[in-house]
Design a binder for these strands. Structure first.
Lengths: 115, 115
DNA sequence: CAGGCATATGCCCAGATGGGTATATACGTC
DNA sequence: GACGTATATACCCATCTGGGCATATGCCTG
């Protein structure tokens, strides 16, 4: 599995991560709450493990999985350059005014714009 | 393409989005900067378009693509519950208590092990 | 040590997907 | 309207991946 993005592309894996964000769980608990066959859960957990999203602890016959946030921080970091767009639509007015001003300025003296 | 997550699972598509985050580009510009064959760029753009990540504007024979941040906000929103893990110091206590509780419960009946 | 529970793994299959190539469509120019 | 440019699409193929099933492994109890 290439990247953290590919790992969280799978809906069941996202569900597992969401569950683990509230508290750690055993495979059986995940299996029951997600209503997935056990091999399926184990396979997804393997992908998550190898991607560094989860870690496991042995407790008798059970494996208890807990979240490791590191790979998700990578995703979060990748989003950073896009955050300036979050408020862009809200601030459409401001952007419009900003553009108006630029055009006004350039129409006076023929200044050029850079983009 | 199912979800926004599946769309950004592809490295070239993330590259396109990153490029568009700085400024809009034509297909030819993306093609040149990413060194990808044109059909490949067009196909990725189609996925991005249908996923709502980009919008296009016709300019003579060219199609100029610009970013639409909405689907990325979904991804950002999904990350929200995990952000409390970002600052490990703050939540270390809670996690510790959580673990203590489980150990107490299991130590009553049998042996315990951790790693 | 047998037997049962919890989890992991191996195998096969069907569907999805990205790459590559060829072709279609759209537009602008002469 | 012929031609070149810019982009989209159709087609084929190799690969990957998740689902389902069977089975292996590990641990605990009697």
């Amino acid at each position: 599995m290439e990247s953290a993005f590919a790992v969280i592309a799978e809906p069941n894996r996202r569900a597992i991560l969401s569950m683990l964000s509230s508290s750690e769980r055993s495979v059986g608990e995940l299996m029951h709450e997600l209503r997935l066959p056990q091999p399926s859960v184990s396979k997804h957990l393997k992908v998550l493990r190898e991607g560094g999203f989860v870690e496991s602890r042995v407790e008798a016959q059970r494996r208890v999985y807990r979240l490791n946030p590191k790979p998700l921080r990578e995703v979060d970091a990748w989003l950073e350059p896009f955050r300036r767009f979050w408020s862009k639509h809200v601030d459409a007015l401001e952007e419009h005014l900003d553009r108006m001003e630029k055009e006004k300025a350039s129409s006076v003296k023929g200044r050029k714009r850079h983009d």
